[in-house]
């Protein structure tokens, strides 16, 4: 996309909403901005209805600021809290159904590859833990088996938050949630390991606590997906509403897990992806 596309026709500036004008005058398209520049440009996400202190919302903000080419990025989402925020995102984004996000993204990416062979169009899946590890796992894994050129980002808030806090495959063992009234009986689904075994070229776990590290994982995942193969980033972003902590504790909850060693930052890169990243990251510097 060129910025020309959404420029306001002369004479119509007055009737366009302020948010749109802001996006045109100082939005992130075609500008090399990142999370370090947050606060200095108009973000792609407009006011969203997610809860105060939402770790997922914070992750979405950081995610959108991390995109290597926002003007050519299409996001495929799924049912869940992130789907409530996505109608307010200044990108083409698709809400298909619950769980089929990686299937839709597979078809979309292939179509865009055929239509725009010389112009990278980044197709990124952003979905919750329920959509990724439970109801959509089959389609997530098969997109990886096929090596689709898409990045999959799981916003792991460890529950079905949008429907009122039910246990998901990513809830920690023992957690008492709706539909797990005596506590969850099994461990978090080992998604990073599954991703690696399923053939992902790049796998990372991260959290919004460390914004720069978060940005690096997202950028790497998207770049590797462009040319090497499927990639996966798992973002730990706790939910104050359903885990019943104060909204200002979201980041300290992550820090606590980090200290306990329960949550770890990990990165797995195939040699081919490593080589690719060395080339593109070297280019940048």
């Amino acid at each position: 996309m060129t910025k020309q596309m959404f420029r306001i026709a002369p004479g119509f500036e007055e009737i366009m909403p302020q948010e749109y004008r802001d996006l045109v005058t100082h939005g992130p398209y075609d500008r090399n901005v990142g999370v370090a520049d947050l606060g200095t440009f108009k973000e792609l996400l407009e006011e969203h209805p997610l809860c105060a202190g939402c770790g997922l919302a914070l992750s979405l903000r950081l995610f959108l600021a991390s995109l290597p080419a926002p003007a050519d990025t299409v996001v495929v989402g799924s049912t869940g809290c992130s789907a409530i925020a996505f109608p307010q995102v200044g990108l083409h984004n698709i809400h298909g159904l619950f769980g089929n996000q990686n299937a839709i993204a597979s078809g979309l990416k292939r179509a865009l590859k055929l239509r725009f062979p010389d112009q990278p169009k980044d197709v990124v899946v952003v979905a919750g833990d329920g959509a990724t590890a439970d109801i959509g796992l089959e389609m997530v894994m098969h997109s990886w088996f096929r090596g689709e050129n898409i990045a999959t980002v799981m916003l792991d808030n460890e529950a079905y938050a949008n429907t009122g806090g039910q246990e998901s495959g990513m809830s920690p063992r023992g957690t008492v949630l709706n539909m797990a009234p005596t506590g969850k009986k099994f461990e978090k689904v080992a998604m990073p390991e599954i991703a690696r075994e399923a053939g992902c070229a790049y796998v990372a776990t991260t959290s919004p606590l460390h914004a720069r590290r978060f940005e690096k994982a997202i950028r790497r995942a998207i770049l590797v997906a462009r040319d090497v193969g499927s990639t996966y980033v798992q973002v730990f972003c706790p939910c104050p509403t359903n885990y019943k902590f104060r909204p200002d504790e979201t980041l300290s909850v992550i820090r606590k897990r980090e200290k306990e060693g329960v949550f770890q930052y990990r990165e797995y890169i195939t040699p081919q992806a490593q080589e690719y990243l060395a080339a593109v990251e070297g280019e940048k510097q």
């Binding site: 999370v35 947050l38 792609l44 407009e46 006011e47 969203h48 914070l58």
Partner: peptide
Amino acid sequence: CKLCILACPDPNVICF
């Protein structure tokens, strides 16, 4: 230091 900007879950709230 902008740490607040990186911690805010809502967009376009804190500007630098």
